[in-house]
Design a protein around this nucleic acid. Sequence first.
RNA 1: GGGAGUAUAGCUCAGUUGGUUUAGAGCAUCUGCCUUACAAGCAGAGGGUCAUAGGUUCGACUCCUAUUACUCCCACCA
Length: 876
Amino acid sequence: MTEIASKYEAKAIEDKWYAKWMNNKCFASQPDGRKAFTIVIPPPNVTGVLHMGHMLNNTIQDVLVRRARMKGFNACWVPGTDHASIATEAKVVAKLKEEGINKQDLSREEFLAHAWDWKEKHGGIILQQLKKLGASCDWDRTRFTMEEALYESVIDVFVDLYDKGLIYRGVRMVNWDPVALTALSDEEVIFKEQNSKLYYLKYKIENSEEFVVVATTRPETILGDTAVCVHPEDERYSSLKGKRLIVPLVGRSVPVIFDEYVDREFGTGALKITPAHDVNDYNLGLKHKLDVIDIFNDNGTLNDNGGVYASMDRFDCRRKIVEDLQDAGLVFKIEDYNNKIGCSERTNAVIEPKLSLQWFVRMEKLAKPALEVVMNDTIRFHPAKFKNVYRHWMENVKDWCISRQLWWGQRIPAYYLPNREVVVAKTLEEALAKAREHFPEENYTSADLKQDEDVLDTWFSSWLWPISVFDGIRHPDNDQIRYYYPTDDLITAPEIIFFWVARMIMAGLEYRKEVPFRNVYFTGIVRDKLGRKMSKSLGNSPDPIELMDRYGADGVRMGMLLASPAGNDLPFDESYCEQGRNFSNKIWNALRLIKSWKVEHLPQPDSSRKAVEWFEAKMNATLCELEKDFSNYKLSEALMTVYKFIWDDFCSWYLEIIKPAYQSPIDSETYERTLDIFERLMKILHPFMPFVTEEIYHMIRQRKEDDFLMLSSMPCGTERDDAVLERFAFVQEFIAGVRTVRNEKNIAQKVALEVYYSNGRESGTLAEYADIISKMCNLKSFESTSEKVGGAIAKMVGTTEFFIPLTGSVDKEEETRKIEADIKYYEGFRASVMKKLSNESFVSKAPSNIVEAERKKLSDSEQKIALLKEQLAALK
RNA sequence: GGGAGUAUAGCUCAGUUGGUUUAGAGCAUCUGCCUUACAAGCAGAGGGUCAUAGGUUCGACUCCUAUUACUCCCACCA
């Protein structure tokens, strides 16, 4: 045998196998007679680099895909990236700025050329990184949400929904980002605590010298005030009915309105109303039919409605206006105040609520069936607790603002006519045809049509992802979509259950009349040891590539999975990866052991035959357990099951039993059975640790290079022999009992012991497995006895007593103490059982098998107590 | 403010419709071992009033109620 290193070195081996898998197209899938198993990747942002969240998410996907592939499914994992309009545009803008180019100086076409250029050069690094992790994606299918087919799908869907009346254009209050010059969805706004001031301003009552004090954090918005509101039952202000107030500095006369919306406890209980710049004020404005005065430009400066403040920045204006108010004696007081301010997730700019013409999708009709399929388990959520979250949102769903004032994205296919009408169509030509059809007298030409400047929300393309990657929007009957849709599992984070998961379900039902996936597995958030979310800004996220260099991709994969049941956050700690690496090494050394044996045609020892028999039974039991774990998506438990099966059952028990004495040969029968078993173990482990298992598979037996483990079939559990498992479990317990004595008495492993065991219920099993017991405990004799052995250590396992005569003297005091403690324990136990049995209602009401079990507990404990007492007596 | 979830060993988690000897695992800890596959290892051990208080039941980690602590989601007060 050639020398095999005692330490497993992952890196070279991982690179080697990934290249071989790729060269042999092991990940490729095309429709065939098998059943499909499909996963579409949650497309990472094209700007993204691999972080720990991706590692977890993609490890899980790979485990599921690899297992399905080995179970005979035609497994297809579709990779790709998302154009991420806001993030990418921000990145390109920043890069251009470094080069001294302003976005404003470029035409739309020029900017897009730069953006595509950036995408070609830097986009999709993350997909290369995923290969290091071992992701078995069908890379030939890599899709991008802005590529032609997907772009067109988005446009098709927009036109279709518009024609169905599900898309409309309306005035709405949107979250305006004055830096990015775009509207943001509610989800993209984050609220931050900020120290600010609460200004108490005097509003004169019209035709009176009295005034009302109104508290505000945004004094500059008085320029847009069109009312002051108080609570209808607020006695302080009951005299204001029918009165009007003068907005300070501005001099405008506005009505006092009464509405229960006002919190009487806050400030003075009087609220100024600026319908153009606050969502609540806007709603109140609608209700009370107030004027709307918009005072801001898009970039956050004051517009002409700002009068003398026009063209000032909003924050400069605030300072100036406060000064002016103070000079005019219109400030009652100023207090410190902490409030929460909405900021843009991307640019960090303070959000300006703004009235704007935007495109919306009507959600109500789409949401209803999408809610139903989750509630009735057509789509199963793992864990199921997210069903509640989902329901809550779907029942209160609001219309979806889909227009974004950006260039990088699918441009909205709406065309404005000189007569201010709008037509929606896939192309300019079709739009023109529609325009001519509607307004035959106008004789429009294409030059008359002006396309909407906005692009669509990124999620408006990602919601089609499971369909559009198979081109199922443009060609609903193509072979690919028919074969692969619906997909099987979606692996994603609970944070995007609404923007993405819910909307994919809606799109699936609307465009395929079928759910997009059967199962949704929600991963947790990866946190650091202190429980903080991993993030770039905190710098607490390890570099996944470096981690894989140190522990191997297999080690990191195992590390990620060990501590993350579905839906639970993962408090990441490198020691998990270390455990994974150690496991790789353990398997590696099992291989070294086996490969070091000389094989000869010898009769198979009984101990080996029994070990094989037991291990096969254990294998069946384990396979059943795994089947159950996987069907419940309990991947951590499945991995732990495999881990213990290999480390404990295979290495610590099976191999130790069959291991021949040093430099002695092994019989060929046991050897062949062992190689068989080892190969099956590698198959079972493969989905979790693809690289080390593939490597070892090829070293166990000589095989052709393209005879891949990853394409082999997963072993299936058959009926298991519980009787064997039970007997062996007792043998293990017995062996541990003897070893404990050895440990307690500090007897070296090499000193062979003499052991006698009492005749009883289990003595048959002990005789049957005598060879194994002798080997595992290093015994020189192992015999049954019908009498007590004097001057020996006596212990009990089950109901069997065993004796180890020791050459040295027995520490009577210590033994006595231990036995007395045991007696105490069993007496306590017996007491609790007796209490139950003496309870008449227990005996009469509990099922008979339970009562029977209690009786057995009682007799067992009594037998043990009796034996222990005998031992105690023998000691004295 | 509204909704949901969690609370079991030092840490991370299992514990199926209430009854399987007075709760299990991995890691960590401790003890003894450099035993010819592996110290990234071997053998063994210790460690829990199952958050608190009530209730239902013959019987509660498991079901109900309240309390406490934490987490997440939604909304948000000028």
